[in-house]
Design a protein around this nucleic acid. Structure first.
Lengths: 100, 100
DNA sequence: AATATATATCGGTATTTCCCGATATTCCAA
DNA sequence: TTGGAATATCGGGAAATACCGATATATATT
């Protein structure tokens, strides 16, 4: 995990917001239904885009940033890409903060 | 504490480095001596500047940034300004990470 | 094959950040 | 009170980031 890059990714209110929304999709996304039955793959780009009010390209870019630094993971299913939090990285970062 | 601003402050390898050096000044700064007897006021700008290799103005600016977001605190004594980690903010951030 | 939908990528402008040199300010010492 | 030392602030060029619209790509439907 690249600390500096992770912090940069977190240094933006919209990305921070997205990360927060993804904590409880059912609460934040009206139309949300767990995508693959029992396997939770997260939330598709379109939902996040609508809720954010930013453009599709911007959100796609932001999700790519979060994905690149490992804060979320992506799953492509058909024409949708689902993003969900990568709790491992987030936990690792949390631990790292204790030794910052 | 402004999360976004704190993360921005942390999203720079030099500032992250400084914060790390300040964890154990006696270990990182050759000439370091606790400035005010038993009261630890931290490390003066000059020491940090020399170790970093960056210019005086840049370091002064970086320390101001860290100070503004509450990651360090400053104490002016005579012609020196001493900076030390603000463990309260750092701990608060660490806790906040758990609920990120 | 043609079309529609979801997402990614590209190109661009405005803003911010990085880091510098020069200058100002503050305090101390002679 | 003049000079020197430590730090802060100012002005700026280069690079990165924020966010957009337009276009490309991939998949699904007909």
């Amino acid at each position: 995990m690249n600390q500096v890059e992770v912090f940069k990714a977190l240094g933006n209110k919209n990305r921070l917001q997205i990360l927060n929304w993804l904590k409880s999709p059912e609460e934040h996304f009206v139309d949300y239904v767990p995508a693959c039955g029992d396997v939770d793959v997260g939330v598709c780009v379109g939902y996040i885009q609508k809720k954010s009010g930013l453009t599709q390209s911007t959100i796609s870019e932001y999700l790519a940033v979060l994905n690149r630094v490992g804060l979320v993971s992506a799953t492509r299913i058909g024409q949708w890409t689902y993003y969900k939090r990568n709790e491992e990285t987030i936990a690792a970062l949390s631990n790292l903060m204790d030794t910052l």
